[in-house]
């Protein structure tokens, strides 16, 4: 078990730079838009995102291990591209709500509790996306072919990759201005659109 977890951690640490690359287009604009006032809030945003990502990894690990156990077959990557499209739609929606929060409909959504769920949802959808580290992990899962081992492996893998996302918090001292919030929202629109296009084009082959 220790060997398996060390292997997962090592793979996560080795490939985690890619995770930052894959997740940053979502996390950074969101972080700027929310403009956390305290370090606690900044940590909260990153932790929510990471928790969503953890859930995604565990679901992914369980599913792929089960598939590896049952079928020894290919991973249905096209389904994962749907997650990319959904993450993009979510980001565009979020940016829209924040940008037009002076309009009644957006204000209601902006003030409601549902928007606080956004980082979890985005973390989950981005976490389940096809990215090189996830594929590398998935290949190992297919070999393992056991759900419990797969979950343990991916738990350690998650810890390894998450190390690279924590520095996002360090932007906190520079974000609390109206300009930075606007930049975050506008970048969120662009990133969301890019995730949608990327997911759809990958889906279409």
């Amino acid at each position: 078990m220790i060997a398996l977890m060390t292997e997962g951690l090592g793979l996560g640490l080795a490939t985690g730079g890619y995770c930052l690359g894959a997740c940053a287009p979502m996390v950074v604009p969101y972080f700027l838009s929310e403009a956390p006032a305290r370090w606690k809030d900044a940590l909260g945003i990153v932790l929510k995102f990471l928790t969503g990502r953890l859930a995604a990894y565990l679901v992914f690990a369980a599913a792929v291990s089960w598939m590896g156990h049952r079928f020894r077959g290919d991973i249905p990557l096209s389904l994962l591209n749907v997650a990319s499209v959904l993450a993009g739609i979510l980001m565009v929606g979020y940016s829209g709500i924040r940008t037009f929060s002076d309009k009644a409909f957006c204000r209601r959504l902006s003030e409601g509790k549902s928007l606080r769920m956004w980082p979890w949802a985005m973390g989950f959808l981005v976490g389940i996306n096809v990215c090189p580290p996830l594929i590398a992990g998935a290949v190992r899962l297919l070999e393992l072919g056991r759900v419990s081992s797969g979950i343990l492996f991916f738990l350690a893998f998650f810890v390894g990759t998450s190390v690279y996302l924590l520095p996002v918090m360090l932007m906190k001292p520079w974000v609390r201005t109206e300009r930075m919030m606007n930049i975050g929202r506008l970048a969120g629109f662009l990133s969301g659109g890019w995730f949608v296009v990327r997911g759809m084009s990958a889906w279409a082959g």
Partner: peptide, 23 residues
Amino acid sequence: SKKLRDFPSALLLFLLLVSLTVF
């Protein structure tokens, strides 16, 4: 609109991040 004037900075941020994503 004041909300839009920083679009070039947003575009730059977006490009920096996605360029890194896809190398």
